[in-house]
Design a protein around this nucleic acid. Structure first.
Lengths: 153, 153
DNA sequence: GCATATTGAGTTTTTTGCGATTTAATCGTG
DNA sequence: CACGATTAAATCGCAAAAAACTCAATATGC
């Protein structure tokens, strides 16, 4: 029973870990053409959905700290895809906005999700269900972490 | 239809990406006590299952290249958990073997999977099903990548 | 038996990611 | 208003991961 749990628990985390790698490998050649890395692509996706967000808000959605995002955003700024400007009314915040070049990239990136769906070899329903299950798992894991902090300290 | 695909494909990869992060965060405090990182833990798990493997074989099972594994294995060697020795009969290969200290670590790591199962908040059946689904997704993505190389080049 | 191809690890460099600390701006309270 | 507390982002230092490339050992073809 204990051994059974051992095996199961180990393998779900490994399945997620290796599936993440596999996604990376499929995305890599496609993203190379756009000059983006995978985390950079995720930031662009967020901005294509809602332009003009603060660093903190982007971090909330991607679960990343400012220490990770700041250099990443600077690289995207250097590539000409976005601008970083202090908010007028609250100068602690930095607002991130797409440039024309960044908006144009969206068209070129539009083929990506289709490629991924094809590569997954799964139907839309199954993909949708998996996305829901994995997202709920993530939320449970994150909640657990917070509980731990609250009770442990 | 095209837009629907866009959203789905994007979010499944993000669900996996963020779930992987969440696993990392849950594992981190537990692994810190053992002086291991998450990928280092995965290597140890493989060696606990089958000791005395080559770098290449470990890479096959974890889907990692030697460029990733070599530095990682050197750190584990420096920590005293394993030894790396050239194979006598084929000196291109390096055989990786646990030390006594590395074998002892298994006992301390035994609590981890239970913690992860608890953190996931899911039942054994659901975990098992998810593990299967995500593993199959990974295999499909990897097969696609290989097809791509074979036909594309 | 020798030249070439292939294989297996290692090296180098860039990006990612986190924790701890720092700086600057804003908020609250007296 | 002024003081300290809080917030947002940036910086620094570090470990890790991934890709491109190199190097050495073995295998293969002639």
């Amino acid at each position: 029973m204990a051994d059974e749990q051992l095996t199961l628990g180990r393998f779900l985390c490994f399945a997620i870990y290796s599936a993440n790698h596999a996604f990376n490998r499929v995305y890599k050649p496609l993203l190379d053409k756009l000059g983006l890395t995978y985390p950079q692509y995720l930031v662009m996706v967020i901005l294509w959905e809602d332009d003009d967000q603060t660093v903190g808000r982007i971090g909330e959605r991607l679960y990343l700290e400012s220490s990770t995002l700041t250099p990443l955003l600077k690289r995207l700024e250097a590539a000409g895809y976005l601008r970083r400007e202090r908010d007028m009314s609250d100068e602690r915040q930095v607002r991130v906005r797409l440039t024309d070049s960044g908006r144009q990239l969206r068209g070129q990136a539009a083929v990506l999700p289709g490629c991924i769906i094809e590569a997954s070899g799964l139907g839309i329903e199954k993909l949708q269900q998996l996305q829901g299950d994995v997202s709920r798992l993530r939320d449970a894991l994150m909640t657990f972490g917070q509980d731990d902090e609250a009770s442990g300290k």
